[in-house]
Every structure is written in structure tokens, then in C-alpha cells.
Deep mutational scan, measured.
Amino acid sequence: MLDDRARMEAAKKEKVEQILAEFQLQEEDLKKVMRRMQKEMDRGLRLETHEEASVKMLPTYVRSTPEGSEVGDFLSLDLGGTNFRVMLVKVGEGEEGQWSVKTKHQMYSIPEDAMTGTAEMLFDYISECISDFLDKHQMKHKKLPLGFTFSFPVRHEDIDKGILLNWTKGFKASGAEGNNVVGLLRDAIKRRGDFEMDVVAMVNDTVATMISCYYEDHQCEVGMIVGTGCNACYMEEMQNVELVEGDEGRMCVNTEWGAFGDSGELDEFLLEYDRLVDESSANPGQQLYEKLIGGKYMGELVRLVLLRLVDENLLFHGEASEQLRTRGAFETRFVSQVESDTGDRKQIYNILSTLGLRPSTTDCDIVRRACESVSTRAAHMCSAGLAGVINRMRESRSEDVMRITVGVDGSVYKLHPSFKERFHASVRRLTPSCEITFIESEEGSGRGAALVSAVACKKACMLGQ
């Protein structure tokens, strides 16, 4: 009897593995994704193909990295998701002549009506938060230079001027797309009239992360975010950046690689679950690469896999709870928690219980395998993109072996128990001629924006502006 049951459990697990095998990517698959990513990057950089390229390769006008001589107080704003952060950054000489960066910050959550109302409502709310922060720190009387981390696709015309191309991540505030974001912020500050600010720089969160990590390690020339969304930036040779005049030196390019796949480059790798996630998203047909990796989508992918296993009578005796059938019910943090389970399955059992399920031991094991399959594919897909960037940098610099540091931020990278190990191992397999160091950014977005502002202020002083 026991043997029969054991055989049935083994057969069930084997069927589960057959279904989950769809998520496995072979090294040849990853090399294919990497080569296609490089081709799209090239198209994004070139003037004649930029418009139709899915990977936009947006110039950021960040050319210099901090040298350690900029000092002063800077205000930093960070808008990239449902939370908005205001930070005071003091850049100065530390002990023994070292450079020191001290920060104080406060988080504000953005109400739904500000995210989806008008641009005026959104930026009025942001300036209200700045006003509140300055009151708390008794700094209303000071006109501070301000660095703005704005983590949406922007076409820069200068370091302090950028046109919002399109909202992502659930934002829909009308009247912002096609307009200068810094102008919208300046107008809102003017409307309030109770404080003055000098907006000197606007950067993407990947750029802010790279600059913040450069402060720790001067070989950091790539910034990457794996959180709600997924994106990367890197220092490109100016001669390859056709959208900006000049051939000397390097400029940081914001790849906006989340949109890779929007022209069909990933079609052969998309599964039924991916198509369902895409169809029910706020932007169907867009940001397809990001939807395979980002935390906004990972939990939902797992939920759809679990429903398939229920329908195949391989999980929960073929019956799903009402909660499990509800879109968004299986949160991405559950994926991390399930994979963090120590082996007694308590954590998995508790999560499934909150979803109205009474799982068996085998159910718990199957749910864990589903989570591992989805998150491992995410790590491997992400590795193909980064390997594409790094191999490109090595080739354009004609280096036999390139040493490089990548600064990384984002909740999936930082909080998932195995993502970074799987990701690092896969990147290294795909970049055999590179020695890569990964560092995690601390308060990256805010500190990085302030350091970019410090560079901009120093330049302005040198130019006598």
C-alpha cells in the first residue's frame, strides 16, 4: 500500500517536472537572447534605426563620474514606483581627507489618484512632500541643488532636461508624456511658492545606482535594477552614441532593455503563462523582457503555473481556492519566502493557508518547484541581457580580458534567497573573457542622484555659470 502511494507521488512529481521543464533555458538559448539583445542595442544607438529599435539606448548626458572633490548639501528625489523618497545628502571631506556622503531620508507613498490623475496632481503632491521634508529638517530658507531620480523612459536633451516617452509600472498621470519632466517639477514648486529649489540633474535609477557604486569602486561602469521592473545602464564610447554629437570619451546610456521583445525577438521563448500575464497587464505587448524578470510579474506567473497544475490534477487534489483564482493573489514576496523555507515546509504551508488552501507535504514541495522554475528562468533571462552589455563593452574597448564592476539594486536581487547566485553564475558562463565584480548599492537611487548633481554643480562652477 505504502509502495503504491510512494509510486503515485513519484509519478505525480515526474509529471510536474515535465510541465515545469518549459521554463528551462539551455545555454544556447541564452546565447541567442544575448546576441539578439546586442543587435537591438546597436539599432538603438544608431541614428537611422533608433526610432524602430525596441531597446532605445537613451543617452543620459552623464559623462563624468564623481571624483571626490564636490562638497555641499544636496536634496535628492526618487520616483520610480508607488513609494517616493526625499533625501538630504551631505557631501563633504571625511576623516583623513576621505570623501564622505551622509544621508537623511523619508519615504512617502503615492496615492492612487496622483498616479493615475493628471501630471499637475502628481507633481503638486511631490512638491508637497518636499515642503514637508524641508519643514522637518528646518531647511526651507536654503535654496538647495536638487537631483531627481526618475525611473521611467526619458529622452534627455541635457542633464536637466528630459522628455517622458511613456509611463510604465502602473503610472498613468495624463499630460506628462511628451513633456519635460524637470519643467513639470519646477512648475509645481513655483505653484507652491513656499520654498526654492535648483533642479540641476535628472537621472534614471540605473544611472543613480551606477554612480553610487562608483563611489565604492571606481571600476563600476554598469548599473542595473532588478526590482519591480528590470533595466540597466553602462558607459558607452561616445563615438557609438549617434544621437549625441561628439566622439570623445564616454557617456552613460540608459538601455531601457525592459522593452526588448516588443518587436518579436522573444516570441519563441514566451510561454502561455507569459501571454496571460501580458494580456492582463496595463501595457499589453510592451516591456516583454521586463515581464519575464521583474517583481511586478513574478508572483503572478507562479500563480498561473499553480492553476495549470491544479487543472492537471497534480496539486491540491485538483481544487483551487477562490483566493488562488484571484489575479495578483500570489505576491512576489511569497516566491522569495517559499524558496527561503528551511525544509520543514512550515513557511510554505503558512503562505498557502493564507490563500485558503490546506496543502499536503507533496503540495508544498511542488509549489516550491514552481517558484524555483519561474525565478530561475528570470535570473537566466536577466543574465543574457547583462552578458550582452558586458561583452559589447569588452569588444568596443578591444580588451582581451576586461575587469568590470556592476552596481545592482532592486528588491528581487536583494531579497530573493537564490536569485543573485543563479544570476551571477549564468552571467559568468556567458562572459568567459571578463572578470566581473557585483556590488549592491546602498540607498543607491538617492545618493547617486545627489552625486550626479554634485558633478553638475562642479561643472557649472568651472564653466562660470
Rank of each mutant, 00 (worst) to 15 (best):
residue 321 S to N: 12
residue 209 T to D: 01
residue 263 S to D: 10
residue 199 V to T: 12
residue 174 S to E: 06
residue 353 S to Q: 06
residue 408 V to W: 10
residue 109 S to P: 10
residue 440 E to N: 12
residue 290 E to M: 15
residue 372 E to M: 03
residue 347 Q to V: 10
residue 406 V to M: 02
residue 323 Q to D: 07
residue 313 N to K: 08
residue 174 S to N: 04
residue 447 R to S: 14
residue 285 G to C: 11
residue 456 A to Y: 04
residue 265 E to F: 11
residue 38 Q to V: 05
residue 105 H to G: 06
residue 223 G to A: 11
residue 295 G to P: 13
residue 246 G to N: 00
residue 348 I to E: 06
residue 435 E to S: 13
residue 101 V to R: 03
residue 56 K to Y: 14
residue 43 R to T: 14
residue 67 E to R: 09
residue 427 V to L: 10
residue 422 R to V: 14
residue 196 E to R: 07
residue 138 Q to M: 13
residue 319 E to P: 14
residue 221 E to S: 08
residue 150 F to M: 13
residue 267 D to E: 05
residue 123 F to V: 07
residue 301 L to P: 00
residue 332 T to R: 12
residue 309 L to H: 07
residue 287 Q to S: 15
residue 378 A to C: 11
residue 47 L to G: 14
residue 136 K to W: 06
residue 190 K to S: 15
residue 231 N to E: 12
residue 322 E to G: 11
residue 12 K to E: 04
residue 349 Y to I: 02
residue 257 W to M: 05
residue 218 H to P: 06
residue 293 I to Y: 05
residue 348 I to F: 01
residue 415 L to Y: 07
residue 337 Q to R: 11
residue 291 K to Y: 14
residue 115 M to W: 11
residue 23 F to T: 13
residue 209 T to G: 01
residue 293 I to K: 06
residue 140 K to E: 07
residue 253 V to E: 00
residue 4 D to A: 08
residue 13 K to I: 15
residue 214 Y to V: 06
residue 245 E to V: 02
residue 295 G to M: 11
residue 387 A to M: 04
residue 448 G to I: 06
residue 208 A to D: 00
residue 201 A to V: 00
residue 238 M to R: 04
residue 215 Y to L: 02
residue 428 R to M: 12
residue 198 D to I: 00
residue 145 P to F: 00
residue 102 K to Y: 13
residue 390 I to R: 00
residue 142 K to R: 11
residue 201 A to H: 00
residue 204 N to C: 10
residue 452 V to C: 11
residue 76 S to P: 01
residue 422 R to N: 13
residue 365 D to E: 07
residue 307 L to M: 04
residue 416 H to P: 15
residue 109 S to R: 09
residue 69 S to K: 03
residue 191 R to N: 08
residue 310 V to F: 07
residue 56 K to V: 08
residue 183 G to Y: 04
residue 364 C to H: 02
residue 165 L to Q: 06
residue 330 F to M: 04
residue 451 L to N: 11
residue 102 K to S: 12
residue 420 K to S: 09
residue 454 A to M: 15
residue 439 I to K: 04
residue 245 E to F: 03
residue 266 L to M: 12
residue 2 L to E: 09
residue 10 A to P: 13
residue 308 R to H: 06
residue 385 G to C: 06
residue 147 G to T: 11
residue 286 Q to M: 12
residue 295 G to N: 13
residue 70 E to K: 04
residue 102 K to G: 12
residue 177 E to M: 07
residue 272 E to V: 02
residue 360 S to R: 02
residue 305 V to A: 03
residue 404 I to L: 07
residue 430 L to N: 11
residue 111 P to H: 15
residue 114 A to S: 13
residue 458 K to P: 12
residue 314 L to D: 08
residue 159 I to L: 12
residue 217 D to M: 04
residue 160 D to L: 15
residue 151 S to N: 13
residue 79 L to P: 03
residue 62 V to C: 08
residue 241 V to T: 01
residue 28 E to D: 12
residue 315 L to W: 03
residue 140 K to V: 06
residue 452 V to Y: 05
residue 40 E to H: 00
residue 353 S to A: 03
residue 372 E to V: 04
residue 283 N to D: 13
residue 88 L to H: 03
residue 83 N to F: 10
residue 386 L to V: 11
residue 452 V to P: 07
residue 222 V to H: 00
residue 164 L to W: 12
residue 16 V to Y: 10
residue 273 Y to F: 12
residue 59 P to S: 01
residue 164 L to K: 15
residue 98 Q to D: 06
residue 198 D to H: 01
residue 322 E to N: 09
residue 379 A to C: 10
residue 133 F to A: 01
residue 52 E to Y: 09
residue 249 G to N: 02
residue 254 N to H: 10
residue 276 L to G: 08
residue 189 I to W: 10
residue 337 Q to C: 07
residue 254 N to M: 08
residue 417 P to A: 02
residue 343 G to H: 04
residue 396 S to W: 07
residue 67 E to K: 13
residue 200 V to Q: 03
residue 278 D to N: 15
residue 100 S to G: 05
residue 112 E to Q: 11
residue 331 E to V: 12
residue 380 H to S: 08
residue 386 L to D: 00
residue 267 D to M: 06
residue 242 E to F: 01
residue 267 D to H: 04
residue 112 E to A: 08
residue 179 N to D: 08
residue 373 S to L: 07
residue 381 M to L: 12
residue 298 M to I: 15
residue 231 N to P: 02
residue 457 C to R: 12
residue 204 N to P: 11
residue 326 T to Y: 12
residue 185 L to G: 00
residue 353 S to V: 05
residue 241 V to S: 01
residue 362 T to G: 07
residue 461 C to Y: 10
residue 21 A to Y: 11
residue 372 E to L: 03
residue 89 V to L: 05
residue 141 H to S: 06
residue 464 G to N: 12
residue 39 K to E: 11
residue 226 V to I: 04
residue 232 A to F: 02
residue 74 F to D: 00
residue 164 L to E: 12
residue 214 Y to W: 13
residue 203 V to Y: 00
residue 8 M to A: 15
residue 3 D to V: 06
residue 128 E to L: 14
residue 58 L to K: 08
residue 105 H to C: 08
residue 447 R to M: 12
residue 301 L to Q: 06
residue 144 L to A: 04
residue 87 M to P: 00
residue 348 I to Y: 04
residue 241 V to L: 05
residue 39 K to A: 07
residue 319 E to T: 07
residue 50 H to I: 04
residue 140 K to F: 06
residue 105 H to M: 13
residue 227 G to N: 01
residue 292 L to A: 12
residue 203 V to H: 00
residue 336 S to T: 00
residue 176 A to V: 09
residue 294 G to T: 15
residue 155 R to Q: 13
residue 26 Q to L: 10
residue 96 E to W: 09
residue 264 G to A: 07
residue 13 K to Q: 13
residue 362 T to N: 09
residue 456 A to D: 05
residue 137 H to L: 06
residue 336 S to K: 14
residue 456 A to F: 10
residue 250 R to S: 06
residue 186 R to A: 04
residue 261 G to F: 08
residue 96 E to L: 12
residue 146 L to I: 15
residue 374 V to L: 07
residue 16 V to D: 01
residue 421 E to P: 12
residue 232 A to L: 11
residue 383 S to F: 00
residue 198 D to L: 01
residue 455 V to L: 13
residue 27 E to G: 07
residue 403 R to H: 04
residue 241 V to M: 01
residue 448 G to R: 10
residue 79 L to Y: 03
residue 405 T to S: 02
residue 302 V to D: 00
residue 396 S to V: 13
residue 447 R to E: 14
residue 49 T to Q: 14
residue 94 G to S: 12
residue 78 D to W: 06
residue 427 V to Q: 05
residue 335 V to S: 04
residue 188 A to S: 07
residue 439 I to H: 07
residue 280 S to E: 14
residue 238 M to L: 03
residue 166 N to R: 12
residue 399 E to G: 05
residue 34 M to R: 05
residue 304 L to Q: 11
residue 284 P to L: 11
residue 318 G to H: 15
residue 285 G to V: 08
residue 231 N to G: 06
residue 288 L to E: 15
residue 119 A to K: 13
residue 91 V to F: 05
residue 138 Q to I: 07
residue 145 P to K: 00
residue 45 L to V: 08
residue 6 A to I: 08
residue 326 T to N: 14
residue 245 E to D: 09
residue 145 P to G: 02
residue 204 N to R: 09
residue 238 M to Q: 00
residue 115 M to F: 09
residue 429 R to G: 12
residue 11 A to S: 09
residue 307 L to K: 05
residue 373 S to W: 03
residue 454 A to D: 12
residue 436 I to D: 01
residue 9 E to R: 10
residue 351 I to M: 01
residue 89 V to M: 04
residue 286 Q to A: 14
residue 373 S to T: 05
residue 127 S to R: 06
residue 439 I to A: 08
residue 135 D to W: 04
residue 426 S to K: 12
residue 393 M to S: 14
residue 134 L to N: 06
residue 105 H to S: 10
